[in-house]
């Protein structure tokens, strides 16, 4: 565990909790892509199946359980409790365009051709693109609530911090996982445009709105 890894995990946790609190406090999931949230629930479920097969640490187990629990709580909010506020008309990204290639790739490029390893690989690839329905929704409506941009910022920051964690681990432990690194790079690059808008607009007190 190094400082980048820890702050990365905490940033991820912050993102998840910001989203849950935003929905709970405003009693609304307007502007949130339910499709991205479904994809994140699939990501956590397929990646953390090793909860049933191996124990790494109390930290590791607790975080996995919290991430999975929060992912399903978010889905419950969006599709059941606050369903009336869900903006499904703008959440029109075709997720099969992500699921099919990602599923195929995880069968072709993995560390080991075993069910758990393929599911883990699938989750890594899927996570890298899971935010696209949310970004698509924002580009469609042309704006995002400030609290939603904070959520996106911490969610993007988390994988960027993991990139530094992997550089650290490569130099000091000789550890590297090419699948995670390449997918993490893709994931971080997808947020770059958003990071730019967040820094130049939101941090200066303006609402994030895109030119028509």
């Amino acid at each position: 565990m190094n400082v980048f890894r820890l702050t990365g995990d905490l940033s991820h946790l912050a993102a998840i909790i910001i989203l849950l609190l935003k929905i709970w406090k405003t009693r609304s999931c307007a502007g949130i892509s339910g499709k991205s949230q479904i994809l994140f629930a699939v990501v956590f479920t397929s990646r953390y199946l090793d909860l049933l097969t191996s124990f790494i640490s109390l930290y590791n187990t607790s975080m996995k359980v919290i991430y999975i629990g929060c992912a399903y709580a978010t889905l419950y909010f969006v599709y059941m409790k606050f369903k009336a506020t869900y903006d499904g008309n703008h959440d029109t990204f075709r997720v099969e365009f992500l699921l099919v290639p990602v599923g195929g790739l995880s069968f072709l490029v993995n560390h080991d051709f075993s069910p758990l390893e393929i599911l883990w690989t699938f989750s890594i690839y899927l996570e890298s693109v899971a935010i696209l329905p949310q970004l698509f929704m924002i580009s469609k409506t042309g704006e995002a609530e400030t609290i939603t941009t904070h959520y996106l910022f911490f969610l993007g920051l988390y994988r960027a911090l993991y990139l530094f964690n992997w550089i650290w681990r490569f130099y000091f432990e000789g550890f590297f996982d090419m699948i995670a690194i390449v997918a993490g790079l893709v994931q971080t690059i997808l947020y770059c445009d958003f990071f730019y808008l967040y820094i130049t607009k939101v941090l200066k007190g303006k609402k994030l709105s895109l030119p028509a």
């Binding site: 995990d9 191996s54 790494i56 590791n60 975080m63 560390h111 080991d112 964690n165 995670a180």
Partner: peptide, 10 residues
């Protein structure tokens, strides 16, 4: 499999 990195990350 020794080519599979350990899964200690989240």
């Amino acid at each position: 499999d020794e080519d599979v990195p350990t899964k200690d990350e989240l």
